[in-house]
Design a protein around this nucleic acid. Structure first.
Lengths: 253, 253
DNA sequence: CCTATTTTTTCGATATTATCGAAACTATTT
DNA sequence: AAATAGTTTCGATAATATCGAAAAAATAGG
């Protein structure tokens, strides 16, 4: 159904990632099992349009500025980003912790907004990466409240990996935790993905009782899970409530 | 030379912008002069791959999350962003003014980094847009120091428009200003693009005496051009010098 | 500095495949 | 409910993407 040449072009673009920022022509052809001359035609078209950029000295391609420019539109237009901006700033200020917003996208959590606690900050960093849902607070906060079928569909296709001794490694253990999240109102990550890094997260609701996103307060384990945890949780839950209101959430409906 | 179907796919993606965040199938076909069934095949392929997203209720397409994710790699991998980050934070702190970094790209300035002065701030906003070079400090700071041929090639293709009474509207006036910038070491925008908004900017150099980017301090006219202008300019010039050093600029070569 | 090797670019023939029109289907408006 | 506007499917056809081969360019080796 997909148009072959376009599919190949998109496959090529998707080869690039944080861990593989550049590719050479031959690499691309080998990785995708295509003829070099075929790849050459495709990458030339992509380069002419600014979707890839070519370093003719190093003879390697990387993501082009056009994709950056277009990608910025995505987050700029994202409703939850627009509504959450001020609230997450305040939250970072009051808690002294970084926090971030992610949306559920293709069985992963895509980070779309990041707020830092201290003083001056720069835009651009810390957004864009995809987070694994089952072993993070930001992910489980959404899993706990989404349609059960969608949740199971996700869990059944996910490759569950033990990252630390705290990682929940069975679907049953995760489902039990989701039940606790529903009772508690927010999710807790006790260092399941990265040793020493913890988080609290709660879902952001939109109109039609639809989960729009998830907001997480993150930081060193002792900072998040220490004596301050109840304060953090209260601030978090109040913040997601205000953002949800702003988005038009109307639980009475 | 370009592959037709891919070219069309890219043209479709490029239809989306901040001012036109969504498009319907028929719109796309009309705008690009293509048959609806042709467009349908292309947008379906793009949607399947997350390059576009489709709201089946509103029946309209918008930029997909995949482009956002890939675009983030561009700015993450950008050398000047990596090196400048800490310096622009300090600059914002010391001056109390917002500042931003842009790179020269396709006859425009693409904003890749933004630093805010006050308190807590969020990432993501303010990056991505393209700025018109001739009527901004961030643009003229690069024009003044780039290869003269490139500068003239840009100026001759640019459609020069009067935005305010301060806008320089002839190539000669712009060239005179560029000469002043070279003497002075930094560019000044006295409200040429937007009434009441001013900026100071200076170029960032990389290895091989190549202009990597431009750094601008921006704000309300009275804040930038008032009695504090010399302090701002000094801070700015010191900052670009440190960033250039960090990038490996070696003017002695 | 020249040769060998690897990588990239060009080009034309061929068959694959993108395109188009038409028709079926769906949604919206009056 | 009917009419209009917009979307999706499908198969025939001709346009065009693909491929192999050869030329060109760049790097590595001697």
């Amino acid at each position: 159904m997909a148009i072959q040449s376009i599919q190949r072009a998109l496959d090529i673009i998707c080869l690039f990632s944080k861990s593989r920022p550049t590719c050479r022509l031959t690499d691309i052809a080998n990785r995708l099992g295509l003829k070099i001359s075929t790849v050459h035609g495709i990458v030339s078209t992509l380069e002419q349009n600014g979707f890839l950029q070519y370093d003719s000295h190093l003879r390697q391609y990387s993501i082009g500025s056009k994709i950056f420019e277009l990608g910025a539109h995505f987050s700029t237009n994202l409703q939850v980003n627009l509504h959450a901006r001020d609230y997450v700033q305040t939250l970072a200020e009051r808690t002294g912790c970084s926090n971030r917003i992610g949306i559920w996208d293709k069985n992963s959590v895509l980070i779309t907004l990041f707020a830092f606690p201290e003083g001056v900050t720069t835009s651009v960093h810390n957004i864009g990466p995809r987070i694994t849902p089952y072993c993070t607070a930001i992910g489980r906060a959404m899993l706990a409240f989404m349609e059960e079928d969608d949740c199971m569909a996700y869990l059944e296709q996910e490759k569950i990996v033990r990252h630390t001794k705290y990682t929940l490694t069975t679907i049953d253990a995760i489902l039990d935790d989701l039940e606790e999240i529903r009772k508690r109102g927010y999710a807790i990550n006790r260092g399941e993905l990265t040793w020493g890094r913890a988080g609290l997260a709660a879902p952001i609701w939109g109109p039609g009782e639809k989960i729009e996103a998830s907001l997480a307060v993150i930081g060193a384990t002792e900072r998040i899970l220490g004596e301050n945890i109840n304060n953090l949780a209260t601030e978090l839950v109040e913040t997601v409530s205000m953002i949800s209101d702003s988005l038009g959430y109307n639980p009475g409906q």
